[in-house]
Computed example of a mutant assay.
Amino acid sequence: MDRQFAIVTGASTGIGYEFERICAREGFDLLIAADEVEIAAADLRSEPGVGAIEALHVDLATQEGIEQLQAATKDRPIDVPMANAGRGLGHAFLDRDLARIRGVVHTNVTGTTGLLHKLGYDTRRRNQGHILITGSIAGFTPGNFQAVYNASKAYLNSLSFALREELRDTEISVTCLMPGATETEFFRRADMLDTKVGSEEKDDPAMVACQGFNAMMKGEGDVVTGLKNKIQSAIANVTPAEALAKQHRKTAEPGSAKH
């Protein structure tokens, strides 16, 4: 097995799909996990020079799903685990069904934590590899009408930096990709198409994935994609939480697309 081996979760569309394309072009064998993975895999397999691609339809919000993904590796050393699976949820916290709230927490927090623990343990044992975690600049801001999602991304941002420090004396790098609003299926699935952020122009997922992949391979700790997002994240670091929450309301409140 001369090719390196990469795992990409949340790989059906958007940033995850673009990660797959980059890994395929760079000569990685791939294990991809998400909804509609067979469609994504078929697109990649049609390109010349692509290595082995295995598609796994699995619920990574569950322990069973995580174990299924690990079993699918067949104990092959993982060079690049990319924890990209995530779920959004718009509208007011108290107006949302608790089952949907739990779905966001189980996918973004519980599932990603379990996945990183499983795959990260194997990576540490080899003392070699690059780990990527898809956080978000949303983690810097209390998310009015997007409260659970923003809180989950704050958790992932923090976990990424902590894990990187714990692995400082190893040959393993941990990179946190922190994009802003990106042109994916995210806002439709989160019921946020009637919001300002859901209706305005967004970043290209191919650009976001490319910057994230390059930062990961260089061993960088984090990357905020796009100049506008860099400015927003810098401002968020020096702005009181209450002011940030009020500002976020203007972009994520249902019906704000009309204003």
Rank of each mutant, 00 (worst) to 15 (best):
V224M: 10
N84P: 04
D194Y: 01
K258L: 15
Q68Y: 02
S152W: 04
I22C: 02
A42C: 00
Q128G: 11
L177R: 09
T251F: 13
E166G: 04
I53V: 13
S152F: 04
Y121R: 14
V80Y: 15
A83M: 14
S256M: 09
L30N: 03
L30G: 04
G27D: 11
R188T: 11
L132T: 09
G212Q: 07
L177T: 07
L94R: 05
Y121H: 13
L177D: 07
S136Y: 06
L60S: 03
I53C: 05
K246S: 14
R168G: 12
E18H: 08
R164L: 09
L167Y: 06
L177I: 02
V8I: 14
I15C: 10
K153A: 08
N229R: 03
Q4F: 02
M82L: 15
D122V: 04
L159C: 03
Q211E: 14
H106S: 14
T107G: 07
Y17Q: 12
G111E: 08
K74Y: 10
G90S: 15
H130S: 13
I137D: 08
T113F: 12
I131R: 07
R100Y: 10
E166D: 12
V148G: 11
H106M: 14
E47I: 01
A147R: 07
L116R: 02
A24H: 06
I66H: 01
A99F: 06
F187K: 02
I78Y: 03
F186E: 06
M82H: 05
D204F: 00
A42L: 02
T9K: 00
S233Y: 07
N84K: 00
A55Y: 02
N108Y: 04
T13G: 01
D29F: 00
M217L: 12
A71E: 12
D97P: 04
E183R: 04
A24W: 02
I78K: 00
V37C: 12
V105C: 08
I53R: 00
A236P: 11
G226T: 05
V197Y: 03
A83V: 10
Q128V: 02
G135F: 05
A52S: 13
E200L: 08
T175M: 04
L115F: 05
E220I: 03
I137L: 11
